[in-house]
Design a protein around this nucleic acid. Structure first.
Length: 187
DNA sequence: CTTATGATGTACT
DNA sequence: GTACATCATAAGG
């Protein structure tokens, strides 16, 4: 079961364990479910590519907070990116969810991404947030909260084979193999 | 198939 | 002012 201990650990470990977990987004009667196929780990201090590298700012302060909370930010003036905070409180870290594969609610995903081919619905961080209708109003959302929830993370049923590669879209810290992506044709 | 480019909020120099 | 954890489209081979 997903609990605080699942997130309150080393960010790289958490990023690997998130591969194969399912995201469930609900709005009213609607339900979208997707399997996470691609993640990246971002720490703080020692990680030059991390938003938290140079200490807290108004935008990144959630990365220093409690694990299991969403950190959503607006990037390049037009995309949202979704992260899940990791590590103990006070230690910066978050896992960027870079890609997923739809398993349920395809019609609602298509509605969020009109005119896009099925294979490209959620194969990138900005695309994934648009497909799941995730934006800044979910910034700070607690995945561990009880009661009626708009977004739920489910533990994987079966582990998926994945590989570690350098992270994408960054110019510093490229030597760290902290991107994890499902192998083969699954994604 | 590949590369180039525009859109543009936030953090930083 | 510049850089950036991007994406969709246009242009070239």
């Amino acid at each position: 079961m997903i609990d605080l201990a699942f997130f309150e650990k080393d960010t790289v470990e958490a990023a690997m364990e998130l591969i194969g977990c399912r995201l469930v987004r609900t709005f009213g009667e609607h339900r979208i479910e997707a399997v996470i196929t691609e993640t990246e780990a971002y720490k703080g201090g020692e990680d030059p590519a991390s938003h938290a590298h140079r200490g807290t700012t108004e935008r990144n302060k959630l990365m220093f907070g409690r694990a299991g909370v969403l950190y959503v930010y607006f990037s390049y003036g037009m995309h949202h990116c979704m992260n899940i905070v990791t590590e103990e409180e006070g230690v910066p870290g978050a896992v960027l969810i870079r890609g997923a594969k739809p398993v349920e609610g395809l019609e609602f995903i298509r509605r969020n991404r009109p005119g896009i081919a099925d294979k490209q619905l959620m194969n990138g961080p900005g695309k994934l947030t648009k497909a799941l209708a995730i934006d800044l109003f979910l910034n700070g959302y607690d995945l561990l909260q009880t009661g009626k929830r708009k977004l739920v993370l489910l533990e994987k049923e079966t582990p998926l084979p994945f590989e570690a590669t350098p992270r994408i879209g960054i110019s510093k810290g490229t030597e760290l193999p902290w991107r994890f992506v499902v192998k083969g044709t699954f994604a």
